[in-house]
């Protein structure tokens, strides 16, 4: 009876967790289903730290179950030492094992923090594309400064080309996140953040704001379309034909709070627009470094 109870207690949750895992793996687990070099490195990092943690988790579970069964009060045959309260050797082991694991993980952390620093430009023979990102109430504006075009709630990028994002906000703080391409970075008013990505797989990847910014925040969705270089060139050409231009007047129009905005594009953008949005809130590099370092 007791035996069955324990088996049931262990197997029911395990069965539940297993079915969740099966469900997730049969659907689009965006964080693990990476389509960019940064995202795939981040994925292996998550799995590696999980693996390392198992060296503590498993002993804990095994000891918990084993001790619970062996030293239960009605098992009089087990040894009982009520005053066994300390042991230098055993306790040193407790301090040592996690310390070693954390030491290993610390080295990985330090290296990966530098390797996967969002500000670090990706090395590639292909010329990178710059995109300026503005989080607004409640949509994303993407400016392609070299091409002189802009889009709202949609990004087109060519495959195997490094993309350098610069991000700010003309709204409360948002977080720019395309799980299949890379981890997120904040877009903050008056501040300039950077993120470099490169996709190695054609497709459409959904992106969103991960940080609450007010009523329409859940609708701040955009698609990242990863296409061939030629398709990209065509897209740029087509976009230049669009009738809309983004100047100060149309920007003010765009800046009004709107929700669930369907994507559209601008054929022309005034070159200083991004800077003017950034400096509207009186940003200086000096302020920036202070905010970070505090």
């Amino acid at each position: 009876m007791k035996f069955f109870k324990i088996i049931a207690l262990i197997s029911v949750p395990l069965f539940f967790i297993a079915s969740i895992v099966i469900y997730v793996s049969s659907h689009n687990a965006q964080v693990f289903n990476s389509a960019g070099i940064i995202a795939s490195k981040e994925k292996s990092l998550i799995l590696f730290s999980l693996f390392l943690s198992l060296f503590v988790l498993l002993p804990v579970y095994i000891m918990l179950i084993f001790f619970s069964i062996k030293y239960r009060a009605d098992n009089k045959s087990s040894k009982y030492s009520p005053n066994f309260g300390s042991s230098r050797i055993v306790e040193s082991v407790w301090w040592l094992i996690p310390t070693i694991l954390i030491f290993i993980l610390s080295i990985v952390t330090w290296q990966s923090s530098h390797d996967l620093d969002p500000y670090k430009k990706i090395n590639s023979s292909t010329k990178p594309i710059n995109i300026q990102v503005v989080a607004m109430d409640w949509k994303w504006l993407f400016i392609y400064p070299e091409e002189g075009i802009a889009t709202v709630n949609a990004i087109y990028i060519p495959k195997d080309t490094p993309i350098n994002f610069e991000l700010t906000a003309d709204a409360p703080m948002n977080s720019f996140w395309v799980p299949q391409l890379s981890g997120q970075i904040y877009a903050m008013p008056g501040m300039n953040t950077k993120l470099s990505i490169m996709s190695d797989k054609l497709g459409v990847y959904s992106g969103r704001s991960a940080n609450i910014s007010g009523e329409g925040f859940a609708g701040m969705l955009f698609d990242v379309n990863v296409v061939n270089q030629s398709q990209y060139n065509n897209w740029v050409k087509d976009t230049r034909l669009s009738s809309r231009v983004l100047n100060n007047t149309s920007y003010d129009q765009l800046a009004k709070p709107t929700e669930n905005v369907t994507p559209f594009s601008y054929s022309f953008v005034s070159p200083e627009l991004y800077k003017s949005i950034l400096y509207k809130y009186n940003a200086t590099d000096d302020n920036m470094s202070k905010a970070m370092g505090m």
């Binding site: 009186n282 000096d286 302020n287 202070k290 905010a291 505090m294």
Partner: peptide, 13 residues
Amino acid sequence: FAVYATLHSNTNG
């Protein structure tokens, strides 16, 4: 004091 140290150069013109 920390706040003052952070903001004392933010004179906003």
